Measured scan of single mutants.
Amino acid sequence: MGMPNRKYADGEVVMGRWPGSVLYYEVQVTSYDDASHLYTVKYKDGTELALKESDIRLQS
């Protein structure tokens, strides 16, 4: 078993793309699913969504 190939840690605050949009919002990573390679993130309004790594970026 190798290390999970994840870029962002639980609790890390990053920018997540809103689905169907080009806009990124501040989100907190809450979990990562090794099987689906999706991150569960929480937006400031409390919305929780699963995002692909390509829809997440570090805060500038």
Rank of each mutant, 00 (worst) to 15 (best):
N5L: 10
K7F: 05
L38F: 10
A50E: 14
M1S: 15
H37V: 04
K44R: 10
P4K: 07
D10T: 09
A35C: 11
L23Y: 11
S60D: 14
T30G: 05
V13M: 13
Y25V: 14
T40N: 09
T47R: 10
M3G: 15
E26D: 05
S60N: 14
T40V: 10
T40L: 13
Y25I: 11
Q28C: 11
D10R: 03
T40K: 10
K52G: 10
S60H: 12
T40I: 12
M1W: 02
R57F: 11
A9T: 08
V22N: 15
H37W: 07
G16N: 01
T30D: 06
G20A: 05
G2N: 06
M15S: 06
D10F: 04
V22A: 13
S36R: 10
D45R: 02
K44M: 13
R6L: 02
D34C: 09
G46H: 04
E26Y: 09
L51I: 11
S60M: 12
L49S: 06
S31L: 04
E26F: 07
L49N: 04
M15R: 06
S36Q: 10
Q28W: 09
K7R: 08
M15K: 04
S36G: 06
V22M: 15
A35V: 14
W18A: 10
G2T: 07
T47P: 05
Q59L: 15
G20C: 08
V14E: 00
S31F: 08
M15L: 14
S54E: 14
L58P: 14
D34P: 10
L38N: 07
D34Q: 08
V13S: 06
G2C: 08
V41M: 01
Y32R: 01
I56Y: 00
Y24E: 05
G20T: 04
S31E: 06
D55Y: 04
D55L: 03
G16E: 00
S21Y: 04
N5T: 14
Y24R: 02
S60T: 14
D55C: 06
L23H: 13
G46S: 04
Y25M: 11
G11F: 06
R57G: 07
V14M: 02
E26W: 08
Y32C: 02
D33W: 02
L58D: 14
A9K: 11
S60Q: 12
H37P: 02
Q59P: 14
R6I: 04
K44T: 09
L23S: 10
L23W: 11
S60W: 08
M15P: 01
H37C: 12
V22P: 12
S31H: 11
T47N: 05
S60C: 14
H37G: 15
Y32K: 00
G11D: 05
Y24G: 01
E53M: 04
D10N: 11
V22G: 13
L51E: 00
S31K: 10
W18R: 10
K7Q: 08
